[in-house]
Simulated assay, not measured.
Amino acid sequence: MPWLLLFGAIAAEVTGTISLRLSDGFTKLVPSLVTLAGYGTAFWLLAQVLKQGMNIGVAYGVWSALGVALIAIIGALFLGENLTWVQVAGIGLVIVGVLALEMGGAH
């Protein structure tokens, strides 16, 4: 169950971040409200994950790595932002690092 909540937190954070981009500096009401709701939901879900006993390093590592990767991909595919091969490699290294963190903690 904590993994499902963690993936929900990631989805909420990604939604909030994309909406932040679309809010145009909090000048557009609907994207601004979605930003606040997304971040609030993300932090609440992350708190529930930690309450259920997931290691904070693993939870935050997975949350941040997948969040960065998804935001970069969405930005490139839908928002006209550039994504170079060096950036793609960097995202891959972050994900590999989080996997190493998770596997290193497994008993």
Rank of each mutant, 00 (worst) to 15 (best):
Y39G: 03
G61M: 03
I71H: 08
A37H: 05
G57E: 09
Y60D: 03
G57N: 15
L33Y: 00
W44N: 11
L46F: 03
F43L: 15
V68A: 15
Y39L: 06
V49R: 08
Y39V: 07
T35E: 07
A65D: 03
A69D: 13
Q52P: 11
V34Y: 01
W63P: 07
V30W: 10
A42Y: 14
L29K: 14
G57C: 12
V58Q: 00
K51C: 06
K28V: 11
M54V: 11
A59T: 01
A47L: 05
V49F: 05
Y39T: 06
L66S: 04
L33H: 09
V62P: 04
Y39C: 02
L33V: 12
V49P: 08
G67A: 11
G61L: 02
P31W: 08
A37S: 11
A69Y: 13
V34S: 06
A37M: 00
K51N: 14
L66A: 02
M54S: 00
K51A: 14
L33D: 07
A47C: 02
L70D: 01
L36S: 12
A69W: 12
Q48L: 14
F43C: 14
Q52D: 13
W44K: 10
V34M: 03
K51D: 15
A65V: 00
G40V: 09
L45K: 10
G38V: 05
F43M: 14
Q48C: 07
P31R: 09
Y60K: 09
A65N: 04
P31S: 05
A37N: 05
A37Q: 00
P31A: 08
K28D: 03
V68N: 13
V68S: 14
S32V: 06
A47I: 01
T41W: 01
G53N: 01
L45M: 10
S32F: 04
V58F: 04
N55K: 00
G57R: 08
Q48M: 14
M54Y: 04
L29A: 11
A72K: 06
A65Y: 05
Q48Y: 04
V62T: 08
L50Y: 01
G61D: 05
V49S: 08
L29M: 14
V30D: 10
L29P: 07
L36A: 15
V62S: 04
A69P: 13
L50S: 06
L45I: 08
L50C: 07
